[in-house]
Amino acid sequence: MLEVTGLQKKYKEKTVFENVTLQMKPGEIVGLVGENGAGKSTLLELLATVMQPTLGEIELEGFSYTDGFKTIRRLIGYVPQDIAVWEEFTVEENMQFFEKLSWKKHTKEECRQLCVDMQLTQWKEEVRSLSGGMKRKLNLAISLLNDPVLLLLDEPTVGIDLKSKIEIGSYLHNLAKSDGKMIMYTSHDMDEITTLCDRVYSIGKDPFYMDLLTKNEIAVEQLK
């Protein structure tokens, strides 16, 4: 369970959003849409403990964020919008590096399988010689190493080819439906959102996404 109540984020004078309240249940895939600068990344960063809110409460699996992040971080897999991998490492070394530092232990074969699940097969190749889409896949695979309860994905599939997108989508779907993970997902790709997500939050003042998604018969709720 994820419960967010009355969340507000301000940068000095500028309020990104306020009074955001939402819930997520195990097994749910929830989309987050909105125009550029609406505050999608900001909301995910707050949920991921990367930033702290100016106001409001967040509770994950009964742990309040105000009581410290230590236990909460073990439950979270966060894929930042920017790619965060070692460029001079190979795919294998990246996976090994973060596996060694992770709570959850994996065999080398498991790490490799995780990459294959993300449609990334260049196991021995240096990251700096990979394409942008391949780096994104690795970015995703590393975040899954923790075996998180809550997965926060910030535009994870930007630049990823259609076939891989579909494969990754079905992997994530499986993760939610058979392992009961919660997945929050931002994307500008409406097809992806409508096929993958159980329901959607729209953030920002523009009713555009609201209208669009309602037309597509997707359960959508306006935040803020």
Partner: peptide, 12 residues
């Protein structure tokens, strides 16, 4: 900064 987000989610 870009790697710092990774270090938040490591046991070590």
């Amino acid at each position: 900064p870009s790697m710092r987000q990774r270090w938040l989610f490591t046991e070590i």
